[in-house]
């Protein structure tokens, strides 16, 4: 129980700091909007084609915009040596990691939930055909994105070229999750439910989340303390 209270305290602290400054979420949302806009006029496609590639478009936007949030996650703690204080605090690295991941999850998910209707309006594509299954894919894919992003945000916070290294290290690792999320999202937006032909991707997405969450929880102490 104490562990979860610690997780909650860290997550609440991060969210409070974010909602007061709004630096990451504003940047991330503005960025998502710009990419969506650029996609809309870069490819002037008929509705059916847009529906077919919607998964790819959306998840590229989510991955790019998400990185902006995740980059700030640990970098925010650098001024005034807050990171050292957090590490020295009497909580486990796993609690700190999970708290930060949870806060990032809320922020990235918020950006995604706002981007989704914007995408729908700009491209005249309805995303409500399989709404709840789409939300499930969004929740699972975003958790994968956040877990990997948070652990690598901790890993890259003190190294040179932080902003470049984070996406360079995370995107290849994220490929299996992103591929699954893209395939499923495209199918769901087109109105096809998750069935025998794409069930494997859902399993892959769940497996990805479980495996990487477990590995991150085990290794986070090493990353933070060294």
């Amino acid at each position: 129980m104490r562990f979860f209270r610690q997780v909650w305290v860290v997550a609440a602290k991060d969210l409070r700091a974010e909602f007061r400054t709004k630096e990451a979420i504003n940047a991330s949302f503005a960025f998502a909007l710009v990419i969506l806009l650029m996609f809309s006029f870069a490819f002037d496609l008929p509705v059916e084609t847009t529906r077919e590639i919607s998964g790819g478009l959306l998840w590229i936007v989510f991955a790019f915009a998400g990185t902006l949030v995740l980059n700030r996650s640990f970098a925010r703690e650098l001024p005034n040596d807050c990171l050292d204080a957090l590490i020295a605090a009497p909580i486990s690295g796993a609690a700190l990691f999970l708290g930060k991941a949870l806060a990032n999850y809320v922020l990235v998910l918020a950006v995604e939930l706002v981007s989704l209707p914007v995408f729908s309006i700009f491209n005249n594509v309805s995303v409500t055909a399989q709404f709840w299954e789409l939300m499930l894919v969004l929740a699972l894919g975003t958790w994968g994105l956040t877990v990997i992003g948070t652990i690598f945000s901790a890993l890259t916070v003190n190294i040179r070229l932080r902003e470049v290294m984070l996406p360079m290290l995370t995107y290849p690792i994220l490929v299996p999750a992103l591929m699954g999320a893209m395939q499923l999202t495209s199918a769901l937006v087109a109105g096809k439910p998750i069935g025998a032909d794409n069930e494997a991707w859902l399993k892959m997405l769940i497996g990805f989340d479980v495996v990487y969450t477990a590995v991150s929880l085990v290794l986070v102490e090493t990353v933070l303390v060294g």
Binding site: I159, M168, V215, V223
Partner: peptide
């Protein structure tokens, strides 16, 4: 590339090892 971005040997080795474990899952 990660190894090249870190100067301090202990940190380099630790972070590289962590990344290698993540990479192996592929």
């Amino acid at each position: 590339m990660l190894r090249r971005a870190i100067e301090e040997p202990t940190q380099r080795a630790t972070f590289a090892a962590v990344f290698s474990i993540f990479a192996f899952i592929d």
